[in-house]
Design a protein around this nucleic acid. Structure first.
Length: 927
RNA sequence: GCCGCCGUGGUGGAAUUGGUAGACACGUUGGACUUAAAAUCCAAUGAGGCUUAAAACCUCGUGCCGGUUCGAGUCCGGCCGGCGGUACCA
């Protein structure tokens, strides 16, 4: 009987499904383990071999944990709302739900063929109303909560209202937008509209005017993490800055907890670093500079608030700069500068985000005519506007210190503004001195201090004068949460008097309505503007935007714990049992999006008592990307002749991408090539000496247009799923990016056939011996048990595959077909190659599935060596190997080694200074 | 520019965490089997030297230069190159 992988794999996939092998329920008797994959967006192209890399790794770990006695939750689902299906709908008129459904079916077929141990009864789809009901529910909760900075957590808006009624907002320390102070009487005197507008400033989900990334081509706004270098991440369309009224999530309220929480999770340093940088916490001070209006000075002047991390340099501040969009600009500009300021604003506005980024070097700006008063020296500082100051960061205004900030320096030089050195140690005639080393000079009461104490002293003095305070600032912005698109979750929001209200929880889900077209309306409203009766039963209009992609993925890992629950997002019991994700595997591209948002959602749900853990993902592994490996043929220019790789340098050639599926080990299948494209049906070839056509290759993105896409289906058809699984792991370390190169796959497939042969000694019939294994056989298998267990624990799956190969090679040369040994081997292998393992387990007489069998125990007794081979070095150079009994101690070895003839030969009678013996490792003789 | 990660044979990659560099596999070469091919099996395979040949032996070798150490792919300092993140963030 030969190894018929297709039959075997279909047989066991059916068995698992029928026997419900991988269904899990909460089971207080067993320890739990939660293994999660980042669920895919089901695209029309289907899976290529790069996609399952992480899924295979997590599957191996899940199966391993099951063998170790854990109750393993290992679910899968679909991130099913999103732009591609909608773009396709716009082009073809086909409802995105249909496209999505078809794509999901294809994904499922592909995944099933790989033999994953998912509990599919827990599948979730973000576009399913039973699922997005809970996305909407969390949104309502966010709307009904505010962040209390004093307690450091979310609290109900209802309690905030009670506080307002008793004391106004004077005692409240909230994460909120600028809000004027009021007392209880004032609050009570307000009408509902006014009260609601104020409350919006506090809600964690709020509706506000804000600068947004507007993408005209996609017809929607985008979050910061969806934009890169001024282009949309999806589609690569230009993005511009625009002020619009939008829904936002107050992620910034949690900025501190998002940074601090990173210390407690087992993620890679690089990923933590990316998140820390994205959140961008910096400590500094807010300082107020009073405006001096020309002529009539009063006490009630407006003040410019700046944020700085270097308050110590305040005496070096020689001018101020506001962002062009700063709200004080029109108010403070003096009449004589009015026209020039307006011109500058116009010019700045015209610049796209893209131009602003690429144009960093050009200095531009405009004086407003206004002056601000230095809080200590009383000097008049000219107030400028310039687009090198960003409206969205800090307060949108700076005190410029040209001597100690490179941007201020080039601005000051360009416009001939004074430069005052206040920290010694640099040479300000050539450039700014930004370092924090040096003593303060030219700085009144700060003179002689170091930077660190000067910062503290300055803040203290500012606070005394009421002109400033210590402040932590973040680069992170609140997340823009609305999209002017169709295929997403509708907001459970209606408008009354232009004020947004949320629906009652009982009214959920608010189901996405049908529309006649997926384009914006003529009035420029989002597609939901076309929906009939899109209003509440009382007739109030519903929100027309939908939620962004990250809405549905922000709590899906929680829903898997209790996916069918119609009364709660997750039951207390399920959540208390499964807690949070023990192992999360997915791509690093979600570092600043999903992985921030879901941590934010989770922390909020923790605050309101829905989940029991503050962090969602305990351990996270980023699998590397699988790149494509393209093949080329070389056409001699202006001919139909193709020259092989080794000879191409003798001709003037054009490299042409050729489908990697008609190339084997870089050798082109010429017949298939002629059929591949009619253009080449008459192609002629100049071949290598051995009569083959050799292709060139390059590592590129895996993409249809480069003809380098390899699908798991192709590999499975040719080699089987077990080979695919092993080969993806064998390719290299999980976290490393690498090109897909089918060239090595034969070796892995050969290994499985060799394994099969161990069980089928003579003429292909199964043949298992019940004899007691020899010590050597036991040594081989126990060595492997230890190695595999260690490797799986550290996710080093490529080395496990090698260890299996070594084991099978050794057992083959020992001629071992002992049941005891082979049974252990099959269990070890079953997480990696589950189908062949089940089949061989059955041959061994195992009942039911091997996946429920206990992992073999490593027994050190079997791997003890009687003697140890020591490499012997003379002065660090390995010269020979000598065996010593394993129980020899250092002294015995030292004594024996000096009797060895070869050693004496090398020493040439030189005196020995020192002998270093590292037990069971090495001997080094120093002369 | 700043931050993080990484540089090992023709190729993918190993290396007990400071202890025999190149495991395992691909590829290549030679051989066996076969009418032949495929498949399979066996052997060799870092570079160079010595030798009629083999065994044996020697030198060099983990991006480059230097350091610590009995001993460095691994630790430290400085460079060079690649990948990823971020970018007027005050």
């Amino acid at each position: 009987m030969e190894y018929k992988f297709t039959e075997i794999e279909e047989k066991w996939q059916k068995y698992w499904e029928k026997a419900r092998t991988f269904r899990v329920e909460t089971d207080p008797e067993k320890p739990k383990y939660y293994v999660l994959d980042m669920f895919p967006y089901p695209s029309g192209a289907g899976l290529h071999v790069g996609h399952p890399l992480g899924y295979i790794a997590s599957d191996i770990y899940s199966r391993y944990k099951r063998h170790k006695g854990y109750n393993v939750l290992h679910p899968m689902g679909y991130d099913a709302f999103g732009l591609p299906a909608e773009q396709y709908a716009i082009q073809t008129g086909q409802h995105p739900a249909i496209t999505t459904e078809n794509n999901i079916r294809r994904y499922r077929e592909q995944m099933d063929k790989i033999g994953f141990c998912y509990d599919w009864s827990r599948e979730v789809r973000t576009c399913d109303p039973d699922y997005y009901k809970w996305t909407q529910w969390v949104f309502i909760k966010l709307f009904k909560h505010w962040f209390n900075k004093s307690t450091g957590k979310a609290e109900p808006i209802a309690l905030l209202i009670e506080e307002f009624e008793a004391y106004g907002n004077e005692r409240v320390n909230a994460a909120c937008d600028k809000c004027r102070k009021f007392n209880a009487l004032e609050w009570k005197a307000m009408d509902e509209k006014e009260q609601q507008s104020i409350l919006l400033n506090y809600r964690l989900a709020y509706y506000a005017d804000t600068m947004v990334n507007w993408c005209p081509a996609l017809g929607t706004v985008l979050a910061n993490d969806e934009v890169k270098d001024g282009y949309s991440l999806r589609g690569g369309h230009p993005v511009e800055q625009k002020k619009m009224k939008q829904w936002l999530l107050r992620v910034t309220a949690y900025a501190d907890r998002l940074v601090n929480g990173l210390d407690g999770v087992d993620w890679s340093d690089s990923l933590k670093e990316i998140q820390k940088n994205w959140i961008g916490r910096s400590e500094g001070a807010v300082i107020k500079f009073k405006i001096i209006p020309a002529g009539n000075e009063t006490n009630d002047n407006p003040a410019i608030e700046v944020f700085t991390t270097r308050p110590d340099t305040i005496f070096g501040s020689t001018y101020m700069v506001l962002a062009p969009e700063h709200e004080l600009v029109p108010q403070i500009t003096t009449p004589e500068y009015q026209r020039r300021v307006e011109e500058y604003l116009e010019q700045a506005k015209k610049k796209t985000e893209r131009e602003r980024i690429s144009d960093v070097k050009t200095v531009s700006g405009q004086f407003t005519g206004a002056y601000a008063k230095h809080p200590f020296s009383g000097d008049n500082l000219p107030v400028w506007i310039s687009d090198y100051v960003l409206a969205g960061y800090g307060t949108g205004a700076i005190m410029a210190v040209p001597a100690h900030d490179s941007r201020d320096y080039s601005f000051a030089k360009h416009f001939n503004l004074p430069v005052i050195e206040v920290v010694s140690g640099g040479d300000i005639s050539t450039g700014s001195y930004d370092a924090k080393e040096g003593l303060l000079i030219n700085s009144d009461f700060l003179n002689g201090m170091d930077v660190e104490s000067a910062i503290k002293k300055t803040i203290l003095e500012l606070e005394k004068k009421g002109q400033g305070y210590k402040k932590v600032n973040y680069r992170l912005r609140d997340a823009i949460f609305s999209r002017q698109r169709y295929w997403g979750e509708p907001f459970p929001v209606y408008y009354k008097n232009e004020i947004p209200y949320v629906l009652d929880e009982e009214e959920l889900p608010l189901v996405l309505p049908e529309v006649d077209s997926y384009l914006p309306t003529e009035k420029g409203e989002p597609p939901l503007g076309r929906a009939k009766n899109w209003k509440t039963s009382e007739g109030y209009p519903l929100e027309l935007s939908t939620m962004p992609g990250f809405a549905g993925s922000s709590a899906y890992y929680i829903r898997y714990m209790d996916p069918k629950n119609n009364n709660e997002l997750v039951s207390k019991e399920s959540n208390r049992y499964w807690e949070n994700v023990d192992l999360y595997i997915g791509g690093t591209e979600h570092a600043t999006g999903h992985l921030i948002y879901s941590r934010f959602w989770n922390k909020f749900l923790f605050d309101i008592g829905v989940v029991c853990k503050d962090e969602p993902f305990k351990k996270l592994i980023n699998q590397g990307m699988i790149q494509g490996r393209s093949n080329f043929v070389y056409r001699i220019k202006n001919t139909g002749k193709f020259v092989s790789y080794g000879l191409k340098d003798n001709y003037d050639v054009t490299p042409i991408h050729v489908d990697v599926n008609i190339v084997n080990n870089d050798i082109l299948d010429i017949d298939l090539f002629r059929k591949w494209n009619t253009e080449y049906s008459d192609a002629e070839f100049i071949l290598e000496d051995d009569g083959t056509y050799r292709c060139g290759f390059a590592v590129e993105k895996m993409s249809k247009s480069l003809y380098n896409v390899v699908t798991p289906d192709d590999i499975i058809e040719q080699y089987g799923a077990d080979t695919l699984r092993l080969y993806e792991m064998f390719l290299g370390p999980l976290e490393q990016s690498k090109p897909w190169d089918t060239n090595g796959i034969d070796g892995v497939h050969k290994f499985l056939r060799k394994l099969w042969k161990l069980f089928h000694h003579e003429q292909n019939e199964p043949q298992i011996s019940d004899e007691k294994p020899s010590p050597e056989e036991l040594r081989v298998i126990h060595k492997t048990i230890r190695k595999i267990e260690e490797d799986i624990e550290k996710f080093s799956f490529n080395t496990s595959v090698s260890a299996f190969m070594i084991c099978v090679n050794e057992l083959t040369s020992l001629g071992c077909n002992k049941r005891e040994v082979l049974a252990d081997l099959v269990i070890l292998l079953s997480p990696f190659a589950p189908h062949i393992a089940e089949e061989l387990w059955q041959i061994l007489g195992g009942e039911s599935s091997v996946s429920n069998v206990r992992f073999p125990e490593y027994n050190a007794r079997f791997t003890v060596e009687e003697s140890i081979q020591y490499p012997v070095s003379i002065n660090g150079k390995t010269r020979m190997k000598i065996d010593f009994p394993a129980d020899f101690d250092k002294e015995q070895i030292e004594k024996e080694i000096m009797k060895n003839e070869t050693v004496l030969k090398y020493l040439k009678e030189k005196p020995v200074k020192k002998i270093i013996v590292v037990k069971s490792r090495i001997i080094n003789i120093v002369t």
